[in-house]
């Protein structure tokens, strides 16, 4: 178990390192150099020189990478070029919106998909299965931002149950939560559809295994074998999808924040792109990628919790 854990941690560390190299190098690819790119063509030579110095552009590349990574490891993501404030607190503030949104959507997606997939697998080939999978087909085809627009139209504009956009801040938790409900639903529905389908097909496949027949020979009912034996085994491929979904949810959240005018990471990134603030873009992307890698690690841990065969390896 410890060995497995250690190996996964090494893999996670290596992935983070590799990701940081990729992100750093991509920014180096800008036409000209990052400083002149950010300032545009009409920049004063003095301003340019000052920014070059601030970014350390006169140093050799590996040294700059080392300095950048070293600062990040100490929590220093640099200073935003447009706002002239440190990037780290900016990201922290935005994460207070994006992270709860992604987590809420994930919880919602699982809560919807689990009963749906189970029901469809239990009703395999019957009307209930057909209905659930038809709905799932439709759900997968829905672009989340369009669903968001429709949700706003119905629940905010016509019914006036929930706010159409904006975020009041966490000082009023209830209001904050209310403003996250529609975005979370828009994010969660398509993902729930995918999850339900994966769970169903995984369950159906598991139900064909030899040990399911053994369980039936013991006198368990179909439902009992489904819950006691098939579900846990079927969960293994579902976990893989779940891990990947978190990265889609995070990415989806960036888009959805635009529909609901939520002050999250996504809006910050798009503003930074238009303002050519590479320091902010670079840092925000790094945070996003780190989050995805961390979730992959958590999924690996979950594997070990579910599957005893991994614990020994």
């Amino acid at each position: 178990m410890l060995r497995y854990l250690l190996r996964r941690m090494i893999v996670m560390g290596a992935s983070l390192l590799a990701a940081s190299v990729v992100i750093f190098s991509v920014v180096e690819l800008v036409p000209g150099d990052p400083a002149s790119f950010m300032l545009g063509t009409g920049a004063q030579p003095e301003t340019l020189a000052a920014l070059r110095q601030q970014m350390g552009l006169d140093d050799p590349l590996p040294l700059r990478y080392a300095a950048w990574l070293g600062a990040i490891l100490q929590g220093d993501f640099g200073t935003s070029f447009t706002y002239k404030t440190p990037v780290a607190p900016m990201i922290g503030e935005r994460l207070q919106v994006s992270l709860p949104l992604a987590v809420l959507a994930l919880v919602l997606a699982v809560a919807l998909a689990l009963p749906m997939g189970l029901h469809a697998a239990a009703q395999r080939g019957r009307v209930g299965d057909g209905l659930a999978m038809g709905a799932a087909h439709l759900g997968i085809a829905l672009p989340n931002f369009w669903l968001a627009m429709l949700l706003v139209l119905v629940f905010a504009v016509h019914l006036r149950w929930l706010p159409a956009g904006g975020f009041p801040g966490w000082s009023d938790p209830l209001a904050a939560l209310r403003s996250l409900i529609l975005p979370a639903i828009a994010l969660a529905l398509p993902q729930a559809a995918i999850l339900a389908r994966v769970l169903r097909s995984s369950l159906v496949e598991t139900m064909g295994q030899d040990y399911i027949r053994t369980a039936r020979a013991k006198g368990l009912s179909r439902g009992q074998t489904l819950r006691r034996h098939a579900l846990r085994n079927a969960l293994i491929p579902v976990l893989t999808i779940l891990g990947m979904q978190f990265s889609f949810l995070l990415a989806g959240a960036i888009i959805i924040e635009n529909v609901f005018y939520l002050p999250g990471l996504g809006r910050m990134i798009f503003q930074a792109i238009t303002q050519r603030d590479l320091i902010v873009v670079q840092s925000a992307v790094l945070v996003l990628v780190a989050a995805v890698i961390a979730v992959t690690f958590l999924v690996d841990l979950a594997y070990a919790a579910v599957d005893p065969r991994l614990r020994r390896a």
Binding site: V27, M244, A251, I254, V289, V292
Partner: peptide
């Protein structure tokens, strides 16, 4: 896999 396509698009 750690770079969702949206993130790659943002970088590019």
């Amino acid at each position: 896999f750690a770079f969702p396509s949206l993130v790659i698009a943002i970088l590019i």
